[in-house]
Design a protein around this nucleic acid. Structure first.
Lengths: 138, 138
DNA sequence: AATTAAAAGCAACAATGTTGCAAAAATCTG
DNA sequence: CAGATTTTTGCAACATTGTTGCTTTTAATT
């Protein structure tokens, strides 16, 4: 499974480094999404803050992770499914934020609905975030 | 129209102060949504940063404005329609972010769709943010 | 106009995010 | 595998953003 991580990095033309392995591992062993702060904490004192910022940025660019918008100024990141090509991220699934445990989950099976926009507006991407109580907390 | 602003403040049991009037006015004369930074800039050097923070917080609590989630750590705020009671904000409309002018708009006529969640999940609130090109830029 | 209650401003601080550069590590090549 | 090259990391310094306590000022109340 450690080799899975290496493979994933190589597949994206990224050199295999300790910090990238560690951060990817955090995402893999975590069901929900992670904010930058979570990653710093979970990674312990091992990595510089700057490294975490740059690693997340790189992962987003490569389409390994994607961002989830929030209303509290703490962007969440979650693993992308394999069909995300470099630069061209397309997650058509709904995100769920639990008001109890405050975790964010990707509901991979729930597809974002079609929205009929007023004339003049063109749609390129759609984000749906549902808030409520998750299955673990209910 | 200046008295409209005063009325709105009084209706929400808020004392009428220069900063609240000014910030409310900014929202009224602006079609799109505003981030905290926008407000600081537009208000000039007139108000302390802390005052802006506290005013926005108060307005959200009173249901005068609502937040719009973003993926860039800069929450946007927009005026609520009159049916938002104190504490109980319910905007069932879709938000639109333009990739050209980078403005955020409330599409008041576009209602958020129903989402069928997996069993175990309960829905309390739903946010839909569409990205694309707005009518002014297309 | 005086009293009371609320808000603004200030200062100091904490947290978060950014940039340039030198050191270290990973990849490449013979 | 060892050396050259490229990439990434860590550090330092800084910029921006957000928070808290307290005093002064302003608005509402009587």
């Amino acid at each position: 499974m450690n080799s899975d991580i290496k493979e994933l990095l190589k597949k994206n033309q990224l050199s295999v480094t300790a910090s990238r392995e560690k951060i990817l591992q955090l995402f893999l062993e975590q069901e929900g999404a992670l904010a930058h702060g979570d990653i710093e904490k979970k990674a312990g004192e091992k990595f510089d803050r700057v490294t975490v910022y740059r690693t997340l940025q790189t992962f987003v660019e490569k389409g390994i992770i994607h961002t989830i918008p929030t209303s509290d100024n703490s962007i969440r990141y979650a693993l992308c499914k394999d069909d995300c090509a470099s630069g061209h991220h397309h997650d058509h699934h709904v995100h769920f934020v639990c008001n109890e445990c405050n975790n964010t989950f990707c509901l991979d099976d729930v597809v974002t609905p079609n929205i009929k926009l007023p004339s003049g507006y063109s749609q390129e991407h759609i984000e749906v975030v549902v808030k409520g109580v998750c299955k673990h907390c209910s």
